[in-house]
Design a protein around this nucleic acid. Structure first.
Lengths: 294, 294
DNA sequence: CGCTGACCTTAGCAACGCTTACGGCTGGAG
DNA sequence: CTCCAGCCGTAAGCGTTGCTAAGGTCAGCG
């Protein structure tokens, strides 16, 4: 039978992306981790990871084993939790994973309220950009994952987890204050094709979405500035450097910025925000979901 | 995190019913097993088993943990199997669990045919009386379980396993050769109330079924001889000591015994024979099911 | 061309886990 | 009643496992 500790180690290494990184998280020396992985590979009878100069990547066999490792680690933690519940011991920790823009807007209020009502529960927050994070829920490193899907992006297989739509959040078009196009009664992508756009780098969901919108409208947009950070985008637009789509929640948080907020008549993108958690969420998770839903 | 090896040990002990028994199966000394269990209990923070003079029984916490232990062990074995499949290594073993009377009748032919076509696969057979055995399928100690339900007996929760009805097998009434009642054109339980019956001890599914039939017919039957072994029952009836219900398959196997085979007009019991296996059975399991279904 | 960061190896030591040996307990046989 | 046969637990000893620490290799970068 395979060793569960070594499988847990594999999962940790896969998430960290390197042996040294995993070792640091686990308070071991890299040597120890390396040796255990070598033994796991010997047990399995096949190499599990490619040793690159800048970390490691999983082989196909490693990928397959990782998915099992996550469910096994999760199952072990579930067992522990079941026993704790039987012994009337309250769970003392709640870990939430979230993508950056949610972490700035909808999460803080929920977290603050939760903390007020449960001062004894240690709250932890992790930053995770989609489509990452599902595995961490499976392995119970995460109690609750807040993730999203941009239009056109695929939705990962929930692999036995529960996923529910928290809200659908539309994007708005923002332009520098006093931008000439902002006066038009009706804005279209075609009319904005000549502008400098700001979006993520190619491949980032953000950017994929924008590209697909442009395709659908039959125009080509030039992305002059590439950043995935919406605060940076706001600042750039404010400085008059370009225009962009940003989620509505990002706008709700900023003060009266010197920007124009509009909508494109032929492109009204929206991203879906999802919650992901285990089949039977505990009381704390349920309450956190309740708070987030308000 | 709990130690998976110790959980596997717990499952083994629960199955064996004693520490010494589990130790023997695992080729350890009882002391080693005892120490590991003690450490598991320390990890969990609660006693997991009652130490009786004649073995051990699980505490409620132990029961809860056992069910998780079985799924974890099963998950570990599944992971191993997945990797083996990726490496194109054929599974070399198939373990079938069955109840005694199936083991004598429908299983041998299927096993023999299977062995002929797959001489490289090591076949193992385990005797298990219902409702036991589900946990062993979960933990992948068993690839396939053949189990049954007598009328009136509850069907265990399959807990994520796949269960399918193999066949429904009727019971026949057997009497000694030349028994006066055997000549009656129509036999009823009422007419047979005065006879000496042969059945299992109170509580055995066999007996529960008979008692319920008697209740339904509004009569009381006297069970003069108690045995759960159908071969013994046959021998007793043959010797003229009493009458009994036996599954049809048991009769198919005996030669021209000196018995009369009849049916009671007001009591035609049947037992359902089920197959239990993991969600996605392997090729070998599928083939074995195919053979059993013929 | 040396520096950094990542990985691996080797040597050594602490801790874990097994075995052997022994004692306490219960229930059945003589 | 006494003895014996199982069962479980504890204590001591020892081999193995698995960790740390230190040294070595390779690729990318200033």
């Amino acid at each position: 039978m395979l060793d569960a500790h070594r499988l847990a180690l594999l999962a940790e290494v896969a998430h960290a992306g390197s042996i040294a990184g995993a070792a640091q998280r686990l308070a071991f020396t890299p040597s120890a981790v390396s040796q255990q992985l070598a033994k796991l590979e010997r047990d399995v009878g096949a190499p599990l990871l490619h040793r690159n100069p800048r970390g490691v990547t999983l082989t196909p066999v490693g990928e397959a084993l990782l998915s099992h490792a996550e469910t096994i680690v999760g199952e072990l933690r579930t067992a522990e939790r079941t026993v704790r519940a039987l012994l009337d011991e309250e769970p003392a920790q709640l870990t939430v994973g979230t993508f950056a823009s949610a972490g700035m807007t909808l999460v803080p209020a929920a977290l603050a309220g939760f903390r007020r009502d449960h001062p004894a529960v240690a709250l932890r927050l992790l930053d995770l950009e989609p489509p990452d994070g599902y595995g961490l829920v499976t392995s119970r490193d995460l109690d609750l994952l807040i993730t999203h899907r941009y239009p056109g992006a695929p939705l990962p297989d929930p692999r036995g987890l529960t996923r529910s739509l928290l809200r659908s959040e539309r994007f708005r078009l923002i332009l520098p204050e006093g931008h000439p196009k902002a006066r038009a009664r009706r804005l279209t992508l075609g009319a904005l094709a000549g502008e400098d756009w700001i979006s993520g780098s190619p491949g980032v969901p953000n950017r994929v979405c924008l590209d697909e919108l442009a395709d659908a409208a039959g125009v080509t947009l030039t992305v002059a500035y590439e950043t995935r950070d919406y605060q940076v985008i706001l600042a750039l637009v404010e400085a008059g450097l370009g225009i962009a789509f940003v989620p509505e929640s990002v706008l709700a948080r900023v003060g009266p910025a010197r920007i124009e907020v509009r909508d494109a008549a032929d492109a009204r993108p929206a991203r879906d925000v999802f919650l992901v958690h285990h089949r039977r969420p505990g009381k704390l998770v349920t309450e956190m979901i309740e708070r987030l839903s308000r």
